[in-house]
Design a protein around this nucleic acid. Structure first.
Lengths: 226, 226
DNA sequence: CTGCATCCGCCTCGATACTG
DNA sequence: CAGTATCGAGGCGGATGCAG
């Protein structure tokens, strides 16, 4: 059964947004769909602890509100996948900004915590500072625990895409934990290389340009103490 | 009593953010504090329906996590006010983006809905598109249901501030509902003026520059049907 | 097997009453 | 004014059932 959503009753953009995506798990569902269409059971796998009824309820509500829609899954068959509508896609900016903010609160990985390479991909998108992207045309490839994605810089704009780059200026290979720790400024790329957790192959200058675009060359803001 | 917060247990920036500001009412508290320090009872007044125990609990948690802090209230006395820490202040971007997204979902004001001029102020901040701010130096003043604030454009950057402008290029006077409806593209400034709900006084060119900066000159994206 | 719906115990929420 | 204590209602999480 669909439940009646609790609403704030305020004539305000933020309150309206929270009425739509403010419930528990909702924004994490959007996060997964920002990486492409996803089937019900895949989402269930991506979000340990959600409970099948809640996922079904959230998906139904988001479809009703026009944030998501269903379409035939790519792998053929009669299976359906959920994907973002244009309205849902417009959540990319807010979600990435929130992710960037939240990375300050990431401590060391806890034993029980789930970790996925997918989230490293999102972390890269969140870290890209459009104002710091240089006027070059080149690609940077990342291999995180077996998943591959890249950042393509074209005409001063950087876009993160899944899959390998065609002719990457460098290739960075690492694991999810190290990757996210670098993104959250808890670890410098230098330290990660020194400890053998990060492998870099390619042009040195491109590495510096990429680090700058990702905000890794600033004086590191002290991580938040929990 | 402080309650034990439910957490997602995912090593991901967004999940970490939601662990901090994902509970009900939390982001609306941040919204109020984005407009300056605020006392306990003021927040209670700003957020009808929150319940005093929840507010106390949220404030305590946010202070513990370093998002808020307490300081002596401006009006003297031994009263305390809550304000954002630098970490909390970094939520401005994400919150404004979410507010901009949520405005698409605002229908006509419902009878029971609360409306505050403060939120119109936030709507303006959310609407400013840095890429569309012209290379001029001028101020635009807004008077919404008695509250006054202005947008200051300096060197291609626009900043929204409370209070009157020194020498505004134009002054817009309206009510909260009209203001937010314009911001959510449910009403054009032209229609609002024609129906007498919006009064504009000042330079015509500045008006166009301001409308452009606030994204009012685009083809209006159709409002979302609920 | 996928894609949910149902049931149940617990915890969060919201409202009211109370205190320094 | 600034919270704390209490309690009913309901959202949440986990287990299980079930149809296509």
């Amino acid at each position: 059964m669909a439940h009646r959503r609790r609403e704030y009753g305020q004539y305000c953009g933020l309150a309206a947004a929270m009425d739509v995506i403010g419930e528990r798990w909702t924004l994490l569902i959007v996060r997964e769909l920002l990486l492409g269409p996803r089937r019900y059971n895949e989402l269930l796998e991506d979000l340990p602890g959600i409970g099948t009824n809640l996922l079904a309820d959230r998906l139904r509500t988001l479809v009703e509100l026009g944030v998501l829609r269903q379409r035939p899954a790519r792998d053929g068959g009669r299976a359906m996948a959920y994907e973002l509508t244009p309205i849902g896609e417009r959540l990319r900016g807010p979600v990435l900004q929130l992710a960037g903010w939240g990375m300050s609160f990431l401590g060391d990985p806890q034993p029980g915590a789930t970790m996925r390479p997918r989230w490293g991909f999102l972390a890269v998108q969140a870290l890209i500072d459009p104002n710091k992207v240089g006027p070059v045309d080149e690609d940077y490839e990342f291999r995180v625990d077996g998943e591959v994605f890249h950042v393509a810089v074209r005409g001063g704009r950087a876009i993160a895409e899944s899959g390998a780059a065609v002719d990457p200026a460098f290739v960075a290979t690492t694991d999810t934990a190290t990757f996210i720790q670098i993104g959250s400024h808890r670890l410098t790329p230098f330290e990660a290389v020194a400890s053998g957790r990060l492998n870099l192959q390619g042009e040195r200058d491109a590495l510096i340009r990429c680090s700058t675009a990702l905000g890794m060359m600033d004086a590191s803001p002290a991580p938040v103490s929990a």
